[in-house]
Write a protein that binds this DNA or RNA. Structure first.
Length: 508
RNA sequence: GGGCCUUUAGCUCAAUGGUUAGAGCAGGGGACUCAUAAUCCCUUGGUUCCGGGUUCGAAUCCCGGAGGGCCUACCA
């Protein structure tokens, strides 16, 4: 079986992590965890992109060496991963020797093959954007848009990669691999881009203009520029690990699908004689309160602060529950609180607590064995097998929002089952039949809770472990069998209480 | 200019061309007391953006238009 190798985009360390960074990592983590649970061998990579002009400038502004600067910022992103419960197997930094070595090798290989050539280039250059500008980039009045900062006309010699030679190959590849780009409708955008002739890709910067980069192995006066450095991380991290390449999934934002990931990267690999990734998953963007995220206007969510306030699983749950993968979505405190209160606190959290409470009160804190199952139990079991049947395929297709909705519907069904049996009434009866039904209902609610929680494991792993803990249960490594309704909790001691998702304090 | 996507309940979204267009939340009413003011039940709410067409039958397919979003080119 091939290892399921999945990556996030690497983050440029010129600023602090925001909600978008957090989402991409959580989404990728949920996929990675789900694949592991389904029995796949998974390798999960994330990391940071640490070269380039902006970092060189930021370092200079602070009067430190670029390396010292990135050594200071990179841990912020590693801490973000830790705080978000990200289960990555590796974290690559593009300043690491293992990465630089592979980048050099690939560049040398392509140069030797004649895929890279040197040419003069003259044009307008934006320092801030690290790019040459086209006439079309100008404003109507001939000035350059503010985002480019200072624009100067320069001539320089650079190295170019022959992208165009592989254009038809890529078009054929995309057409013959319908799963290459997810969601599929985005492949159209790529093909649209490829309907025009590709320009060769400038892959270098002269060292006197940009020193902070990986030197070209065949010309020490130049460093390689963004794409050959950044994209290569996916391969460099596993170049010495057999069986991982090609990647199963690159999870990226929709903004870097075209052209880098869907055009440059597969062509780079093809030119190097390496296989293209199996699939690229382009996710959408979060707006905040209906407007674009922006630090300067304060329309901004700090994921770390958020986790501190509400807990990591609450954030993970919201991000995955709210967004349809590939689409854009909006983040607002109002919507978050709706999800948090109604789904996590009231529906699930309260089920946990009432189950514990009743088991304590009516069964001496030990989950009973069920007696003969009645219609109510059979009906709930039926609801479970349907839920299980529906949710797994949804998760397989990354429709986590819909899968979670179904899973929570089962939690609702469990709450409804409890109302129907009303164990608090049975508990007041001395009749043996009522006592037996009481035991059955306590066993059933605990079992249903365990099963419903199991479906949430990839999204809210910590909370699911807590639920198991208060039910006196430790899960096996065989996740699919964890989904079997078999009353395996019988005899387990339960905790006294558990407020999983406390209702947030009302703000004054 | 070319292309792609999108518009369904107050909000967020579902519905291989096939019963009466469905959920969640919000709103209204009721029940219950094990529980985190919780839970459960019932319920109001629709010109499926508009106008044509194809079809026995259209939210769905086709044409035109409007709103919103995105990609891309050219002219200067």
């Amino acid at each position: 079986m091939k290892t399921f190798y999945i990556t996030t985009a690497i983050d440029y360390v010129n600023g602090s992590p925001h909600l978008g960074h957090a989402y991409e990592k959580v989404l990728t983590d949920v996929i990675a965890r789900f694949r592991r649970m389904m029995g796949d061998e998974v390798y999960f990579l994330t990391g940071t992109d640490e070269h380039g002009q902006k970092i060189q400038q930021s370092a200079r502004a602070r009067g430190v060496e670029p390396q010292a600067f990135v050594d200071q910022i990179a841990p912020e992103f590693q801490q973000l991963c830790a705080r978000l419960g990200i289960s990555n197997d590796d974290f690559i930094r593009t300043t690491e020797p293992r990465h630089q070595r592979v980048v050099s090798q690939l560049l040398q290989q392509l140069f030797d093959k004649g895929e890279i050539y040197r040419a003069e280039y003259q044009g307008y250059y934006s320092t801030r954007q690290e790019q040459f500008l086209q006439e079309k980039d100008r404003n109507e009045d001939g000035t350059w848009p503010e985002i480019f900062g200072e624009v100067t006309q320069i001539t320089e010699s650079n190295y170019f990669f022959k992208l165009g030679a592989y254009q038809q190959w890529l078009i054929d590849h995309i057409k013959s691999h319908p799963d290459f780009i997810f969601p599929r409708y985005r492949a159209k955008q790529v093909l649209e881009f490829l309907s025009e002739p590709l320009n060769d890709l400038c892959i270098s910067r002269p060292k006197d203009r940009l020193a902070w980069g990986i030197p070209l192995p065949f010309d020490p006066d130049f460093v390689t520029y963004v794409w050959f450095d950044a994209l290569t991380n996916y391969y460099s991290a596993v170049a010495d690990k057999p069986g991982l390449w090609p990647a199963s999934f690159h999870v990226i934002g929709k903004d870097i699908l075209v052209p880098p990931h869907a055009v440059y990267w597969p062509i780079m690999l093809q030119a190097c004689g390496l296989a293209a990734p199996q699939s690229i998953l382009a996710h959408g963007w979060w707006s905040i309160n209906g407007a674009k995220m922006s630090k300067s206007t304060g329309n901004f969510v700090d994921p770390i602060e958020f986790v501190d306030q509400f807990g990591v699983d609450a954030l993970r749950y919201f991000l995955i529950r709210e967004m349809s993968v590939g689409q854009d979505s909006d983040f607002s405190m109002e919507q978050f609180l709706v999800r948090y209160n109604s789904e996590l606190a009231n529906n699930l959290g309260n089920l946990v607590n009432r189950t514990l409470n009743m088991t304590n009160r009516f069964a001496d804190a030990s989950i009973p064995s069920p007696g003969e199952l009645g219609e109510a139990e059979k009906s709930l079991q039926q609801a479970w097998s349907q839920t299980r049947e529906e949710v797994l395929p949804l998760f397989e297709k990354f429709q986590f929002n819909m899968g979670l909705e179904k899973a929570l519907q089962f939690v609702t069904a469990t709450n409804a089952y409890i109302e129907q049996r009303a164990p608090w009434k049975l508990g007041k009866s001395e009749a043996p039949a009522d006592q037996a039904l009481l035991r059955t209902s306590l066993a059933t609610m605990a079992e249903a809770l365990r099963l419903g929680a199991t479906l949430l494991q990839a999204v809210t792993p910590g909370s699911v472990d807590k639920i198991r803990g208060v039910l006196g249960y430790t899960a096996t490594a065989d996740w699919p069998s964890e989904l079997n309704w078999d009353y395996r909790l019988s005899g387990n001691p339960v905790a006294k209480e558990c407020i999983l998702f406390p209702r947030p304090e009302k703000k004054p």
